[in-house]
Design a protein around this nucleic acid. Structure first.
Length: 429
RNA sequence: GUGAGCGUAGCUCAACUGGUUAGAGCACUGGACUGUGGAUCCAGAGGUUGGGGGUUCGAGACCCCUCGCUCACCCCA
């Protein structure tokens, strides 16, 4: 009724989603390629899972007490009456795929990576979107602390590769099903003692998630939290030993890191090692990369007793720290005059493209001056000029737009020239 | 979900304290200029001032609602 009167309704991208436009897409492609190249070197292979899954997968995997499942999932019913959810994170999908395809029968450890969109119904702000992108890596079947250190080292190598230096590495251990529950109870009791002095948020945390008590920003809470028991003092011997080994191996790599007992992370399934890379350049959403170990998840889904560890990089957050802007490939603008020249141009352009050159040909009739002006504006590296004379003689003028120099070539010579050019670009020296 | 700030052309911004037909720069298109680009000049196109309602003789401006954006809380990548 309302919109019928006004006519056109504006259709815009959904809240919290974004179009990624050229030339910004170049930067995305570049970072994604850097990641793929790096991960492959560590033996990781891409595993692509669907963007939506049965809702139950995340309820069981991510955990029903996590905020993600509690209030951030894009859940809908399809026409067959199934409850489906756009994935809010990737790990449960990988676990599902491993079990479904019996991938655990392959030689271990299994190493996978994936780059793609995730969905969370959150209120958007800087560095936080409803559709966002993650680079995700997972390792299954390696319980040695060496792998914990290795993936942190790999994460650091990725940041270095894309030129990001402003970050700190935080690590912690959240224990296992044996030692964490008793600790949480201790923590709860300690907090209960000073309940009245804590802020309302923290008072709620005592019941909801005591581990988050350490995360409060209120000064008095922070001071009180100093006196609370720390998980690292309550880890069982296995977890303690693992945590110490992780640190020792990180030292082997020469990595600098901070122990951060407050680092609990929001997913229910973490065990032992958790870590985060944080930056000071992003405002409130300062985590660019986060991960940890989840040794119980595979069992939870009825799979084998196979431990897991992994991390996710927030691409939007990472990209906002990447300053490198890849340059566009050099290309040829083809200018022609008259119908016979147009046809010769179309034919020549097809062959040049086959050789591997980027060529632009426009079909609107313009003067040569006008075409050169456009070539200049569009940033052409060369302009190839084809007029009546050139069609007759079979020799074309190739103009270098930077120097203004111009030289004649036959079409065979042109192809040879650009073949050489492409070859020399691929293997410089 | 809670709170704050902001919405004028594709972009960056004007428009006095509420007063005529909402302007400029950049960008875009065309022309001067039909065989040689970058400059200059001229012209054109582009807006329901996010949307709806109200106050007023009169609203881009004031009030209410709504939508969107931004930032923060919460949480996380």
């Amino acid at each position: 009724m309302k919109q019928a009167i006004g006519g056109k309704k504006k259709i815009a991208a959904i809240k919290g989603t974004k179009d990624i436009l050229p030339p910004e897409t170049r930067k995305w492609q570049w970072v994604e390629n850097q990641a793929r190249e790096l991960f492959e070197r560590y033996g990781y292979r891409e595993l692509r899972a669907p963007v939506f899954e049965a809702t139950e997968l995340f309820e069981r995997g991510t955990g029903t007490s996590s905020d993600i499942v509690l209030k951030e999932m894009y859940t809908f019913t399809d026409k067959g009456g199934r409850s489906l959810t756009l994935r809010p994170e990737y790990t449960p999908s990988v676990v599902r795929a491993i079990i479904e395809h019996r991938l655990y029968l392959q030689p271990r450890p299994l190493r996978f990576y994936y780059i793609g969109p995730m969905f969370r119904y959150d209120k958007p702000q800087k560095g936080r979107y409803r559709q966002f992108h993650q680079i995700d890596i997972e390792v299954f079947g390696e319980k040695d602390a060496g792998i914990d250190a290795e993936i942190i080292q790999m994460a650091q190598a990725l940041l270095t590769k894309v030129g990001v230096t402003d970050y700190r590495i935080l690590i912690n251990s959240v224990g296992c099903p044996r030692c964490r529950p008793p600790y949480v109870e201790k923590l709860r009791q300690a907090a209960e003692q000073v309940r009245e002095a804590l802020c309302p948020d923290c008072q709620r945390r005592i019941e909801l998630n005591p581990l988050r008590l350490f995360d409060c920003k209120v000064e008095t809470c922070r001071e009180l939290a100093q006196e609370f028991p720390r998980i690292t003092d309550y880890l069982c011997s296995e977890c303690t030993e693992h945590f110490q080994q992780v640190q020792a191996y990180l030292d082997v790599f020469g990595l600098e890191y901070q122990l951060e007992p407050r680092l609990v992370r929001g997913l229910d399934y973490y065990t032992k090692t958790t870590f985060e890379f944080v930056t000071s350049a992003l405002g409130a959403q300062d985590a660019i990369l986060g991960g940890g170990r989840y040794d119980e998840m595979m069992k939870l889904f009825g799979g084998p007793d196979l431990c897991g560890i992994g991390f996710a990089v927030g691409l939007e957050r990472l990209l906002s720290l990447v300053t490198y802007q890849p340059s566009e490939a050099p290309f040829i603008f083809v200018a022609y005059l008259g119908e016979p020249a147009k046809q010769a141009a179309m034919k020549l352009v097809a062959t040049l493209r086959e050789v591997g050159m980027e060529c632009w040909l426009e079909y609107k009739e313009r003067s040569l001056r006008n075409q050169l002006s456009r070539a200049n504006k569009l940033g052409a590296t060369w302009t190839l000029i084809i007029g009546e004379d050139e069609v007759k003689s079979g020799r074309f003028n190739l103009k270098n737009m930077a120097s203004g120099e111009q030289q004649e070539y036959t079409s065979a010579e042109l192809l040879a020239y650009f073949r050489d050019y492409l070859h020399s670009k691929k293997s410089p020296s």
